[in-house]
């Protein structure tokens, strides 16, 4: 196979894989984008002289945690939400009036006074509109609608995973890392003080100061 053929294969593969599934592409490229961005941010903090060492102990693990949690939550949360929305459309649970008419004509749905209903005993789990023999009649309407629903679900999923779940989890992770590193850093001074759990960094530092500034018993009058 020569280079021209390989190049054509590459183009055609991209077209067949993502031409009809933009949300899938957004998920894969999104994950890769977050990974690359986090790697650069870790370097940015490490080389920033204006950030004190103590803050770097929080910010670097925060960034690593941010990247790792972002990638995992993007894959788990965003993709599951996207697949859920996608399946709602492909199983005929969610549709436009034109798709409903098509499903009614194909004897999958029944039109009633209060809207459309599913036939009694109908098994959604095995049904996919795309597998219907007369799918060509509705393919344009269906593909446009499904792509739109997929992209909306993917965007909402991204907002939930990247902007809500990730910052909460990465802060928890970075706080624990900072405490461990600080405890290790100040080991000779803090000696037997227990690993601080459930207290703020301010309280912890105050406790450390109090422990070592306490007057000894022999000095009591």
């Amino acid at each position: 196979m020569n280079i021209a053929q390989l190049f054509n294969n590459f183009k055609n593969t991209i077209l067949t894989k993502y031409g009809s599934n933009p949300a899938k592409m957004l998920i894969y490229t999104g994950v890769l984008g977050w990974f690359l961005s986090s790697a650069a941010q870790v370097v940015a903090i490490a080389v920033n002289d204006k950030i004190p060492k103590e803050q770097k102990m929080f910010l670097i693990p925060q960034e690593i945690g941010d990247g790792a949690i972002n990638v995992v939550s993007f894959f788990l949360v965003t993709s599951v939400i996207k697949n859920f929305a996608s399946r709602l459309v492909s199983s005929g649970r969610l549709a436009t009036p034109k798709i409903r008419e098509f499903l009614t004509n194909s004897e999958i749905n029944i039109k009633t006074k209060n809207g459309w209903k599913v036939l009694p005993g109908f098994d959604f789990s095995k049904f996919n509109i795309k597998n219907m023999t007369n799918f060509d009649q509705i393919s344009d309407e269906y593909n446009s609608f499904k792509n739109g629903v997929d992209v909306i679900a993917m965007t909402l999923g991204s907002i939930l995973s990247c902007n809500i779940i990730t910052p909460i989890l990465r802060n928890k992770y970075a706080t624990n890392r900072q405490r461990k590193v600080l405890a290790e850093f100040n080991k000779p001074e803090i000696g037997g003080l227990k690993y601080p759990k459930g207290i703020s960094m301010d309280t912890y530092q105050k406790q450390v100061t109090m422990k070592f500034s306490k007057p000894s018993a022999s000095l009591k009058i």
């Binding site: 005929g92 649970r93 969610l94 549709a95 436009t96 009036p97 409903r100 749905n109 209060n114 809207g115 459309w116 209903k117 599913v118 109908f122 959604f124």
Partner: peptide, 8 residues
């Protein structure tokens, strides 16, 4: 499997 199907 809801009996009534949501339609936009």
């Amino acid at each position: 499997s809801r009996e009534k199907l949501p339609t936009i």
